[in-house]
Amino acid sequence: MKPSPHKQPPAVGGNPFAERHAEPPPIILLDGQDDAWSRSVRRDVRNDLMWTGIALGLLGLMAVIGAVTAAIVAIPSGNLTESNFWIVATIVGGGILVLMAGVAVSVIRFGDRSTLFASTLLGIGLSVLSGVAVILLLVLAGVIFLLAICLSIIAKDL
């Protein structure tokens, strides 16, 4: 039997750092087989993972577009109160989180645990940033709205 290409060498000298950063086992263990059946399974798994990453990114984008569109449409119609504004901001953050999860799924094919954790942290950071960005945009919209009211009052006086 051929040796598995996925097996990791043992940690040299019991180095805990090397052990911690050892790659996890492959997603489907075929034990290094290279017959037609295992090649077919490997090809399927590889393609599925790639398309899952792409589709997750697409879903994240759709969630972001949906939430932003809802916010944009709801503000002028007066349907967006302070309480559900936070829900919209959370959804935007969630959307970006799913987007980043898609990226994470794409990279874990090649990466190790640290890459996965880095992607997740990046996703959480971007979610927070997007939430802050939505708040700033809404504050800006509110200021413009107040200015418009003031201007209309001034215009009436004129």
């Binding site: 969630a63 959804i91 959307g95 799913v98 898609g102 994470a104």
Partner: peptide, 22 residues
């Protein structure tokens, strides 16, 4: 909003399955 929350949770489930298996 409710549908978006469910969709985000469902998307997270997809990511969870891959990550758990990996």
């Amino acid at each position: 909003i409710a549908v978006a929350v469910v969709v985000a949770l469902w998307g997270s489930l997809v990511a969870h399955v891959v990550v758990a298996m990996r």
